[in-house]
Design a protein around this nucleic acid. Structure first.
Lengths: 234, 234
DNA sequence: AATCGATTCAAACAGGCGTTTGAATCCGCC
DNA sequence: GGCGGATTCAAACGCCTGTTTGAATCGATT
């Protein structure tokens, strides 16, 4: 194992350090194929390193996996800061922005989301890295959502009820990320591009949730545009 | 390959036919460990068959997987009939029963849901069997839900909008099945048994959805019990 | 009883896997 | 310049995988 010169992770260089290169290649490979199907040989080939390097730097495949999950998770945290709002921002707008940024994060947009795919794998069938992921990444975001929802309902609901509201919001978004292929099969081909973009979904989820908590007109009257001020520019 | 005496699948016997035994064992193993991690040897050991049997009956591991998915899916279809309601049943009640039965199906209750776990794997990262699964199993159920939602909104919404409502309903339930472990981490330990049983979730999702479409009072006024008539007996 | 196809079995096969080895190479330092 | 630890490398090690083989067994038919 390396005992020396773990030169402080300079934020900019991504491909210099062989350890870093392996970590990145491993993340991509694990995200794409899963732990079992990904092979150490492929990972090292992609990283331009020798197969012995993974043993040298990480001990074995399993610890490489754990480290690559943490690494992707930290990178993601650095890229996506917690949303913050100026005091006085309407709760409805906060909700819309929260949902929008979550969907953007989940469904890509800014970058090929292999980090997200990797984290998703961990959430769907947790291993050791999951708890850390939840505590550092999921729970804080969830807490912000709960705060918004609490504000939205005027603090009138017990915490347990607010949590269920939060899960309802998360669930609506989560479906598109986890079962996107199935969604695409259930929806007519032409519709997917028009009505199921991250922006459009964010608009829908927000409106659905606002209506459920009584902060917007319900869906029965179509196109009433009660939350038109919140809709994303198309 | 077997060319003769595929004695018509007598509905009752499950463990007689070696082909059937392998199919069942394979389903359990694939559901538990995934395609890559499950081994032909383990499957055959569990089925009390020789390793050569899988080649004899199915050709190779991959076709065994496909067949086991179909098999589980058909068994599930036989067990869980489409919900039907007497004419005149209120749409709100239909929605509640639909959501309740879906959650019961997903989260178990009646039987250890390895069939569901297997299907879920297929939905989360589709292979060949997925399309068939969606067409025969998912889409019909989804269609029923859309009908209920259309009725609930008085047919006033365009089909695309109704579909999004449907996905919102599915998403809320789906989260508990796909990321149940994470949900359990996000919710205080004591709360999970009281507020996140299939029944309790069904009540919540129904109320949330009804409120969103304007068929029940929104959440802002807690414990108003506006849909108390729909709540499951505790 | 003999026959013949269907089925089962123990054993082996080739290939890929994660991991280890021991020597070669690099690079900063007295 | 040469020492010494850190790093890299090609090669090999067992082991386990899916798959195949060819003979043994079974069960119905003639």
């Amino acid at each position: 194992m390396p005992t020396q010169t773990r030169s402080g992770t300079s934020a900019a260089d991504d491909a210099r350090d062989p350890r870093e290169r392996i970590l990145l290649a491993a993340g991509r490979e694990f995200a794409e194929r899963g732990f079992e199907a990904a092979t150490v040989r492929d990972i090292c080939a992609a990283a331009g390193a020798n197969v012995a390097a993974v043993n040298y730097y990480f001990g074995d495949k399993h610890r490489l996996y754990i480290e690559s999950v943490k690494h992707a998770h930290e990178a993601r945290l650095r890229q996506v800061p917690q949303p913050e709002w100026a005091p006085g921002t309407p709760a409805a707008q906060k909700l819309h922005e929260f949902v929008g940024s979550m969907l953007d994060r989940m469904l890509g947009g800014d970058q090929p989301p292999w980090q997200v795919r990797l984290m998703m794998r961990e959430l769907l069938q947790p291993t050791e890295a999951c708890r850390e992921l939840v505590e550092d990444y999921i729970r804080p975001h969830f807490g912000i959502l709960l705060g918004v929802l609490d504000e939205l309902t005027g603090g009138a609901l017990p915490a347990s009820e607010v949590r269920r509201l939060g899960l309802s919001v998360i669930g609506q978004c989560f479906l598109y990320r986890a079962a996107g292929d199935v969604v695409a099969m259930l929806v007519p081909a032409g519709e997917i591009d028009a009505y199921h973009t991250p922006q459009a979904i964010a608009d829908h989820v927000t409106r659905f949730t606002l209506a459920a908590v009584g902060a917007a007109e319900p869906f029965t009257r179509p196109g009433l545009g009660t939350v038109s001020a919140l809709e994303s520019p198309r």
